[in-house]
Amino acid sequence: MEVASTHPEYFSHVRTIIGMVLGLSLARLVNGLTRFVQHPGIIKVYPVHLGWVIFLFITIVHFWWYEFHLSRIPVWTFPLYGFLLFYAMVFAALTALLFPDQMYEYKGFEDYFEQRKRWFFGLLAFAFLLDVGDILIKGEDYLYSLGVEYLIRQIAFVLLCIIAVAITSKKLQMVLVLAAITYQVSWILRLYVIL
């Protein structure tokens, strides 16, 4: 068995595969958004769906930005690598849920999103729980540097996802997604403007 090493290129190696998965996720969002431009007479925008697309785009870009703090990890193991790869793949699954390969059996994005929102919000809640593990990997000091707001934020987003599944009012759904986007941008600007 080989002794664990702390070579900096290990972090670069892990970042590469995570970057590939996140890059595919962002590409799926961009490709999905261009459908509205390519086929404006056929594919109609559903504002609530579009709001969650914007939220997820911001969240994925944010995830990639703050994952740089993984450079502080002294020893890389396969389970650690597997966890981070799995976490990144959850974002890929979320983007696939927002923009499916085919829409033939649905009347449009409103119909699709309303029928699949349990899957989307369930997986999004799971991503917020995985984030706690990701933060703990970076160390207790990193967790404490985020303050008590971090844990409140994670719990609030998980609860928001549970509530979002039950909300049928389009106006209330829109308020919820706009609040999520606003808070996410606020969080990033307050804590992550500088690495």
Score class of each variant (00 low, 15 high):
66 Y>I: 06
66 Y>C: 05
67 E>H: 11
67 E>V: 02
67 E>N: 14
67 E>C: 04
68 F>G: 14
68 F>H: 11
68 F>V: 03
68 F>S: 14
69 H>R: 15
69 H>C: 07
70 L>A: 05
70 L>V: 01
70 L>S: 12
70 L>Y: 09
70 L>D: 13
71 S>N: 14
71 S>C: 13
71 S>Q: 12
71 S>D: 09
71 S>Y: 01
71 S>L: 09
72 R>A: 10
72 R>N: 08
72 R>V: 02
73 I>K: 07
73 I>P: 00
73 I>F: 13
73 I>D: 03
74 P>G: 07
74 P>T: 11
74 P>E: 03
75 V>M: 13
75 V>D: 02
75 V>F: 15
76 W>F: 14
76 W>A: 08
76 W>Q: 08
76 W>Y: 13
77 T>A: 12
77 T>R: 07
78 F>C: 09
78 F>Y: 04
78 F>D: 05
78 F>R: 09
79 P>C: 11
79 P>W: 10
79 P>L: 10
80 L>I: 06
80 L>N: 06
80 L>R: 12
80 L>E: 05
81 Y>T: 10
82 G>E: 14
82 G>K: 06
82 G>C: 09
82 G>F: 08
82 G>R: 12
83 F>K: 12
83 F>R: 15
83 F>S: 03
83 F>Q: 12
83 F>V: 05
83 F>W: 11
84 L>A: 05
85 L>F: 10
85 L>Q: 06
85 L>C: 04
85 L>P: 02
85 L>K: 10
86 F>D: 02
86 F>S: 09
86 F>T: 14
86 F>I: 09
87 Y>M: 01
87 Y>I: 01
87 Y>H: 13
88 A>C: 03
88 A>L: 08
88 A>Y: 01
88 A>P: 01
88 A>W: 03
88 A>M: 11
88 A>D: 01
89 M>N: 11
89 M>Q: 08
89 M>C: 06
90 V>D: 02
90 V>T: 14
90 V>F: 03
90 V>I: 15
90 V>L: 09
90 V>W: 04
91 F>V: 00
91 F>Q: 00
91 F>D: 00
91 F>W: 00
92 A>P: 00
92 A>N: 05
92 A>V: 04
92 A>S: 14
92 A>R: 15
92 A>D: 00
93 A>C: 12
93 A>K: 14
93 A>F: 03
93 A>E: 01
93 A>G: 13
93 A>Y: 08
93 A>R: 12
94 L>P: 02
94 L>H: 04
94 L>N: 02
94 L>Y: 08
95 T>Q: 00
96 A>Q: 07
96 A>M: 11
96 A>H: 12
96 A>P: 00
97 L>N: 04
97 L>G: 01
